[in-house]
């Protein structure tokens, strides 16, 4: 870990400006991802701007019946919030499927969206990795890729966005609210928030340098049965091989997003439309352009089988 300086900002705009104008600066929230990466010198910020004093730690009702979640709301608090449990159960289930109790106490909403990939080569600074060092090459493509992405990947990088919470947020059509260094605010739909790697896998989101997440907004509840099935090698404290967030309506329509398969939570409206036709039809549409490796090709049939299980449970009214 390199040495760094530290400050606490008093307003989102001030924080954004501080990060934009200080060479090598980054935000820090719960620190559960950033500090780990700093210890390994995968991240080497020279200055940290803490977002904890910005008053962004509330979950509020919005006028349209939705929710507005402050970026500093912890994963624990968000998943336990009565309205989230009641109206957005897929989100509660997704959050609780992630990490561990201690980590969820520290992990924040904004930090969770921005957690970085768990590719083993990204974590080993002796190995070539385009994401860590643009132009360096990718050790994973012909290597240990079982956990990595099957779609939306590129010849530069096949890593995934590894998180759970964002998969549910994508299914719920959440919107990320930000403030830029010049003080202007904008709203980025979850669909556009994470980028595909292309040939710049080190650029992971739509955020501009210094742009700070202030809130995540959830539209009014959509009803239906809520499912989050995270398939992993052990029962807790492991990243998804594949996860499926789904909201299924009584008439069989609904929405579905897949985690653990791509640089972003993977959802398409065309695939959603296939829900009444069953899991195979959805997965055929959603994964039409998949480019798996030999080691992770199983993720596509696994996605189909996981969704099929959800649809079967939806019919009988049991939740997985």
């Amino acid at each position: 870990m390199r040495s760094f300086t530290y400050e606490r900002a008093a307003s989102p705009a001030e924080a954004a400006k501080a990060v934009a104008t200080t060479q090598g600066a980054k935000f820090i929230a719960g620190g559960t991802n950033l500090i780990d990466l700093m210890k390994l010198e995968i991240e080497t910020p020279t200055h940290l701007v803490d977002v904890q004093d910005l008053g962004l730690d509330q979950v509020e009702d919005t006028e349209d019946g939705g929710l507005r979640i402050g970026t500093f709301v912890s994963n624990t608090a968000l998943s336990a919030h009565p309205r989230v449990r009641e109206d957005y159960a897929v989100l509660t289930r997704a959050i609780q499927a992630g990490a561990s109790g201690q980590l969820r106490n520290k992990a924040t909403t904004g930090g969770n969206l921005l957690q970085r990939t768990r590719c083993a080569y990204f974590y080993d600074t002796n190995m070539p990795c385009n994401k860590r060092k643009p132009g360096d090459g990718c050790a994973a493509i012909d290597g240990f890729s079982r956990q990595l992405g099957v779609i939306g990947t590129s010849d530069s990088c096949i890593a995934t966005y590894p998180g759970d919470m964002a998969v549910a947020m994508r299914a719920l059509d959440a919107v990320v609210e930000t403030v830029k260094p010049d003080g202007t605010a904008r709203a980025i739909p979850a669909a556009d928030f994470h980028r595909l790697w292309g040939d710049t896998p080190h650029i992971e989101t739509a955020l501009e340098p210094g742009e700070i997440i202030t809130h995540v907004r959830l539209p009014a509840p959509v009803g239906g049965q809520h499912f989050y099935h995270k398939v992993r090698d052990r029962r807790s404290y492991a990243y998804a091989l594949v996860s499926v967030a789904a909201v299924i309506q009584p008439d069989g329509t609904g929405r579905v997003a897949f985690g653990g398969v791509a640089p972003k939570p993977w959802r398409s409206e065309a695939a959603d439309a296939q829900l009444p036709n069953g899991a195979a039809a959805v997965v055929r549409t959603a994964f039409a352009d998949a480019r798996p490796t030999e080691q992770n090709a199983f993720k596509i049939p696994l996605a189909e089988r996981t969704l099929a299980g959800i649809l079967a449970d939806a019919q009988t009214g049991t939740r997985s």
Binding site: Y123, F144, R234, R235, S236
Partner: peptide, 16 residues
């Protein structure tokens, strides 16, 4: 050994 930490090398947890 590529998975050289306790996130990548999965020993059982209580839930298992």
């Amino acid at each position: 050994f590529a998975n050289h930490d306790l996130a990548g090398y999965e020993v059982p947890v209580h839930a298992d």
